[in-house]
Computed example of a mutant assay.
Amino acid sequence: MSIEPFTVRLRVRIYEIDPQLHLNGAVYVQYADHSRYECVRAAGVSVEGMLGDGVGPVNLETVIRYHNELRAGDEVDVSCAWVWGTGKTYRVEHTFMRMDGEMAAEVSHVSGLLDLRARHLVSDPAREWFARATQPEVLGLQAAKPAPA
């Protein structure tokens, strides 16, 4: 059984428009960040708690793929899907869907969790996220609790 990715709806504001009258490229990253933050909150994770414990999420790579433009006043659903592997990094993938059903863009991140004291990535980010989430399935961790380190 698969669950639908977390999604948040946003409306393009006039001040986010570039000279070509479509959504500025940097704003796609901001929308993705907002979707990811709301997803983390929906999973029951306290970002403030993580930071207080000396751990913080970081993006190591961001790729934007544009498909169809977004213009002022358009509404867009921005999904957030987490893809877990076995190393120190994981992927977070966002799909931007216009209300007409057309995909506007995709934003994908290679991310990790930074130990803020030692300044290096934690070895098992899935385990760390799972331990902090009250609803880990929102983060794609529903199958099984990650193995202890």
Score class of each variant (00 low, 15 high):
83 V>N: 14
36 R>E: 06
53 D>L: 08
98 R>Q: 04
1 M>N: 07
45 V>W: 04
7 T>H: 07
67 H>S: 12
109 H>P: 01
44 G>L: 09
8 V>K: 10
39 C>A: 14
17 I>T: 10
67 H>Q: 14
110 V>N: 07
46 S>Y: 05
36 R>D: 01
3 I>G: 15
18 D>Y: 06
145 K>L: 08
2 S>T: 11
46 S>Q: 07
1 M>G: 12
93 E>C: 00
86 T>Y: 08
21 L>V: 08
59 N>W: 10
134 T>S: 15
119 R>M: 15
90 Y>A: 04
51 L>H: 12
145 K>N: 08
133 A>D: 11
48 E>R: 15
38 E>M: 09
109 H>W: 11
64 I>M: 02
112 G>C: 08
96 F>Y: 06
89 T>C: 06
33 D>P: 00
74 D>N: 09
121 L>C: 05
92 V>G: 00
81 A>Y: 00
137 E>N: 11
101 G>Y: 09
31 Y>K: 01
114 L>T: 05
78 V>H: 00
147 A>D: 10
82 W>D: 01
42 A>Y: 03
82 W>R: 03
89 T>A: 09
20 Q>R: 11
37 Y>K: 01
24 N>A: 10
93 E>S: 00
125 P>F: 04
122 V>H: 09
147 A>H: 13
66 Y>N: 03
42 A>H: 07
123 S>A: 13
138 V>P: 01
105 A>C: 08
20 Q>W: 09
79 S>V: 02
104 A>Q: 01
9 R>L: 06
54 G>W: 07
19 P>A: 05
109 H>E: 07
20 Q>A: 13
23 L>M: 06
149 A>W: 15
27 V>I: 14
43 A>L: 05
15 Y>K: 06
143 A>L: 12
14 I>W: 12
32 A>E: 00
121 L>M: 12
10 L>F: 11
17 I>V: 13
50 M>L: 12
86 T>K: 08
38 E>F: 04
60 L>Q: 09
77 D>M: 01
28 Y>R: 00
14 I>R: 09
111 S>Y: 05
29 V>C: 02
14 I>F: 15
83 V>H: 15
90 Y>N: 02
26 A>W: 09
67 H>Y: 11
106 E>D: 04
33 D>E: 14
113 L>E: 02
44 G>V: 14
123 S>R: 14
21 L>N: 13
41 R>V: 14
64 I>N: 02
97 M>H: 03
18 D>W: 04
105 A>R: 03
88 K>P: 06
117 R>N: 12
40 V>G: 01
90 Y>L: 09
103 M>I: 14
138 V>D: 01
138 V>Y: 01
137 E>C: 11
85 G>P: 05
43 A>T: 13
16 E>F: 04
7 T>V: 12
43 A>C: 10
25 G>W: 06
22 H>M: 02
136 P>I: 14
117 R>E: 13
56 G>F: 10
51 L>V: 14
59 N>C: 13
87 G>W: 08
40 V>Y: 01
30 Q>M: 03
117 R>A: 14
90 Y>S: 03
146 P>H: 07
26 A>M: 09
56 G>M: 07
48 E>N: 14
136 P>T: 15
3 I>Y: 15
56 G>W: 07
89 T>F: 06
128 E>F: 06
60 L>N: 09
62 T>L: 06
